[in-house]
Amino acid sequence: MSTEFILIVVIVLAIIYLLTTLRGRNKHVDRQEKEMKSPEEILPEVQQRLESGEDKIKLIKFVRVETGLGLKEAKDLVEGNFKMDSPASDADLHQKVKEMLQSGSGPIKATKYVREQTGLGLKEAKDFVDHVKEETNI
């Protein structure tokens, strides 16, 4: 084989690799920009899919993508063990996180509190805490 042929094959493979990598990144960005649904909104569809015999693992993935819930919370929702009634409203939660940050509890404890109160995944809870931090200039 000539070196030119080998060089062309390597370049073509590199282009294919780059295109598939960029395509995967675009899908991830689309998921981030997608508006998340609440567990209450998605529960009827989950129940319907369960009754029709859909695989639980696929349903858990679906719930995570649609709601932003963590793995445990999504699994609990699919299996019917998810606590729907959050003890704190958004305003109460916002105020409590603000107080925690001002008192020096730190963002890790505040994030853990948000996850416990809402069932959000780690990233979403951290984003909530970061948003409160930005608003209050802490």
Results as ranks from 00 to 15, higher is better:
residue 125 A to V: 03
residue 132 V to P: 07
residue 116 E to R: 08
residue 34 K to R: 14
residue 103 S to R: 12
residue 36 M to H: 08
residue 12 V to W: 05
residue 70 G to L: 05
residue 93 L to S: 10
residue 133 K to H: 04
residue 70 G to T: 10
residue 109 K to M: 10
residue 59 L to T: 08
residue 11 I to F: 09
residue 105 S to D: 14
residue 56 K to Y: 02
residue 64 R to F: 01
residue 28 H to A: 11
residue 18 L to Y: 11
residue 98 K to M: 00
residue 68 G to T: 03
residue 18 L to M: 15
residue 87 P to A: 09
residue 29 V to S: 03
residue 76 D to Y: 10
residue 91 A to W: 06
residue 80 G to E: 07
residue 114 V to K: 02
residue 41 E to W: 04
residue 42 I to S: 01
residue 97 V to W: 01
residue 136 T to G: 12
residue 113 Y to R: 04
residue 2 S to C: 01
residue 124 E to T: 12
residue 89 S to F: 06
residue 96 K to A: 13
residue 103 S to M: 03
residue 117 Q to A: 04
residue 100 M to A: 12
residue 18 L to K: 14
residue 62 F to V: 05
residue 118 T to W: 00
residue 58 K to T: 12
residue 133 K to G: 09
residue 46 V to R: 06
residue 114 V to M: 08
residue 66 E to F: 00
residue 105 S to K: 15
residue 120 L to Q: 02
residue 80 G to A: 10
residue 137 N to M: 10
residue 79 E to N: 11
residue 56 K to R: 12
residue 95 Q to E: 13
residue 65 V to F: 05
residue 49 R to A: 10
residue 119 G to I: 02
residue 100 M to C: 08
residue 74 A to N: 11
residue 57 I to F: 05
residue 33 E to W: 05
residue 76 D to H: 11
residue 34 K to W: 05
residue 75 K to A: 08
residue 126 K to S: 02
residue 95 Q to A: 13
residue 41 E to A: 15
residue 76 D to R: 12
residue 21 T to G: 00
residue 5 F to C: 03
residue 82 F to N: 04
residue 102 Q to F: 07
residue 33 E to R: 12
residue 10 V to W: 02
residue 61 K to I: 03
residue 21 T to W: 04
residue 50 L to G: 06
residue 10 V to I: 15
residue 103 S to I: 01
residue 4 E to S: 11
residue 107 P to I: 07
residue 72 K to T: 13
residue 63 V to F: 04
residue 4 E to K: 12
residue 73 E to D: 15
residue 91 A to M: 15
residue 7 L to I: 01
residue 37 K to W: 06
residue 11 I to Y: 08
residue 7 L to T: 13
residue 50 L to W: 04
residue 116 E to S: 09
residue 83 K to H: 06
residue 126 K to Y: 00
residue 72 K to H: 05
residue 110 A to P: 02
residue 102 Q to E: 14
residue 57 I to D: 14
residue 101 L to T: 07
residue 70 G to Q: 05
residue 6 I to G: 08
residue 51 E to M: 07
residue 131 H to E: 07
residue 129 V to Q: 02
residue 79 E to L: 01
residue 60 I to D: 00
residue 24 G to S: 13
residue 55 D to Y: 13
residue 106 G to K: 10
residue 113 Y to K: 01
residue 54 E to F: 05
residue 96 K to C: 01
residue 84 M to L: 14
residue 40 E to W: 08
residue 49 R to L: 14
residue 110 A to G: 05
residue 8 I to P: 01
residue 115 R to W: 03
residue 35 E to G: 05
residue 137 N to G: 14
residue 78 V to F: 03
residue 36 M to Q: 15
residue 116 E to L: 10
residue 125 A to Q: 03
residue 95 Q to P: 02
residue 122 L to S: 04
residue 131 H to M: 12
residue 24 G to Q: 14
residue 112 K to C: 01
residue 49 R to I: 02
residue 39 P to S: 13
residue 92 D to R: 14
residue 43 L to P: 03
residue 109 K to L: 12
residue 90 D to T: 13
residue 5 F to S: 12
residue 132 V to Q: 05
residue 68 G to C: 07
residue 133 K to I: 06
residue 114 V to N: 10
residue 56 K to D: 07
